[in-house]
Amino acid sequence: MNDLLLTMESMAESIETYHLLRTIPGVGPLTAAMLIAEIGDIERFPSVKQLTAFAGLDSAVHESGTFKSKKNRISKRGSSYLRTALYQATVCAISRQIHGPRNSILFQFYQQKRNEGKPAKVAIVATSHKLLRIVFGMWTSGQAFKSA
């Protein structure tokens, strides 16, 4: 198992996007490799909305006629591996360290959602969606992560 992880990491080292994703606080070597493996070619997704749908983080709207549900959930239609990688990276990014959270941008967004009254897991999924938007923007522009 350890050999597999080392092989995967050494292969990922040769990909430029891997180093770009590693600039995001909370995204480790395994998560960056998983994101690259699951997303593949970013050019397949003309917009962040399509990448969000691929990840299954878009909302599943329940409506019929004039009925519109007030409780919408994520669709979970897409890649469960991508969703898991984003969720784990988000939990890591918003975790508090001695000096504060690893990723202050994601932590502030998470706290905003919690202050709005959202349950913890709902806020984490919303923050995962924000992380996915950050990944899409960085990957398409080629710019490294910049904290506020």
Rank of each mutant, 00 (worst) to 15 (best):
Y87M: 12
A89K: 13
A89M: 13
V91I: 09
S79W: 01
H99A: 14
G78R: 03
C92D: 03
C92S: 07
L86T: 00
C92N: 08
I98H: 15
R102E: 05
R83D: 06
G117I: 08
I105C: 07
P101N: 10
C92M: 05
Y110A: 05
P119D: 09
V125W: 14
T84V: 07
L106Y: 03
P101W: 15
Y87A: 02
S104H: 07
V125F: 06
P119M: 03
R102D: 03
Q97A: 04
K118R: 10
T84Y: 13
L86I: 08
S95W: 02
C92E: 01
A120T: 09
R83E: 10
S95Y: 01
F107R: 11
L82I: 15
S104Q: 04
R102H: 08
Q112E: 05
H99P: 07
E116Y: 13
I98N: 14
A93D: 01
N115C: 13
H99K: 08
R114Y: 04
E116G: 00
A93V: 04
V91T: 15
A93Y: 00
F107D: 12
R96F: 04
L106A: 10
K113Q: 08
G78K: 04
V122G: 00
Y87E: 04
T90V: 07
G100Y: 05
A120I: 05
T90G: 08
S104P: 12
Q112V: 03
F107W: 11
K121W: 14
A93H: 00
L86Q: 01
L106W: 02
Q108V: 02
G100W: 04
G78T: 03
Y81M: 10
Q88S: 06
K118P: 05
G117T: 09
I94R: 03
P119T: 12
L82W: 15
I94F: 04
K121V: 10
K118A: 02
Q108K: 15
L106P: 09
S79N: 11
Q88R: 01
V91G: 13
N103R: 06
C92A: 12
Y87G: 02
T84F: 07
R102Q: 09
Q97M: 12
V122D: 00
I94M: 08
F109K: 15
S80D: 15
P119W: 01
R102T: 01
T90S: 14
L86Y: 00
K118E: 05
I124A: 07
K113N: 03
Q108R: 15
K118V: 00
K118I: 00
F109G: 09
L106S: 05
F107P: 00
S79G: 11
E116N: 08
Q97P: 01
A120R: 11
R83W: 10
S95C: 09
I105S: 07
A120C: 06
S104A: 08
K113A: 07
L106T: 06
C92R: 05
G100K: 07
T90Q: 14
A120H: 14
A89G: 10
G100C: 10
N115I: 14
Y110I: 10
